[in-house]
């Protein structure tokens, strides 16, 4: 079939519909359609995703309700930080973190090969076929917590919002890097869904103000696995609190992301050369 397509139609196929983004959108559409077959279950699952995410903020509220607090942080400031953390997760989990379970289950079942024979990047295919609509519940949870916190905090100047936005992009980038590491691990560590657990617990460090950890832990969470960028840095920026060693933290995030990309493609190459 492909040979008979004229040069003319080939040109037309360069349109948006056939771009990587178009493939991705198609993936989202078909995932939503199949999930809609069991609406009740879908809505309930989404609700659960949201409730699960509220665990951290609830603990915060309970701590403050009992008259205790994190030194230097008001209750709504902590909630803002956690809201940002949840927003970052709420965007990454439905839109690209599905690459992890998709890779693990496909490698286990042997259907990963079906993605490899498609004439597109394996990264694109793994993400496009893994839109996780239930995880939109996480996003709703994030918007909720972020909104409540903002409503109870004074309005922030525009330049705070701008720096916040830049940090937030890095937060997403970091999530993507996490996804790449997990997916890569999923290729070699066959059928191990607990890979998620490893990263989810590590991420726990990102849900609280950087200042509650000891100095040595702060070093790890800023420069080695820059988890502080997930929420602590963006929240401090938005609230006008001082952030230290910003450039170094951003640089290590980029290094971490590149390492993730390298690791992922390395593992894919491993898989293809060993024949699965």
């Amino acid at each position: 079939m492909m040979q008979v397509i004229s040069q003319n139609t080939r040109e037309k196929m360069k349109g948006l519909r056939y771009s990587g983004f178009g493939v991705y959108i198609q993936g989202i559409k078909s995932s939503l359609a199949s999930r809609m077959a069991y609406r009740g279950d879908f809505i309930m699952s989404m609700f659960i995703m949201m409730i699960v995410e509220l665990g951290g903020p609830v603990i915060t509220l309970i701590i403050y309700n009992n008259g205790a607090s994190f030194p230097g942080w008001g209750v709504y400031e902590v909630l803002l930080l956690q809201g940002i953390f949840l927003l970052s997760r709420g965007i990454s989990f439905p839109f690209f973190m599905g690459i992890v379970w998709n890779t693990i289950s496909r490698v286990q079942e042997g259907t990963f090969d079906l993605l490899l024979i498609k004439p597109r990047s394996i990264l694109l295919m793994s993400i496009a076929s893994a839109f996780d609509s239930e995880d939109l519940g996480k996003l709703i949870g994030g918007i909720l917590v972020f909104g409540i916190a903002m409503k109870n905090l004074p309005a922030q100047p525009l330049h705070n919002w701008i720096t916040f936005f830049i940090f937030f992009i890095f937060s997403i980038l970091l999530m993507f890097a996490f996804g790449l590491f997990m997916a890569g691990l999923g290729i070699v560590w066959i059928g191990n869904y607990r890979i998620y657990d490893i990263f989810m617990t590590v991420m726990e460090f990102g849900m609280y103000p950087k200042s509650i950890f000891t100095k040595s832990f702060q070093t790890i969470t800023t420069y080695i696995i820059p988890i502080s960028l997930l929420a602590s840095y963006p929240a401090s920026a938005l609230l006008g609190k001082p952030n230290t060693n910003v450039l170094l933290a951003l640089a290590s995030a980029i290094v971490f992301f590149l390492a993730g990309l390298w690791f992922y493609f390395r593992m894919v190459a491993n898989y293809t050369s060993s024949g699965g």
Binding site: I59, I63, A68, S69, F70, P71, T201, E204, F205, Y208, I212, F213, T214, F217
Partner: peptide, 12 residues
């Protein structure tokens, strides 16, 4: 993580 949270809370 729990340790750090409560360590910090119990400072006050």
């Amino acid at each position: 993580v729990q340790y750090f949270i409560w360590q910090s809370v119990f400072k006050i």
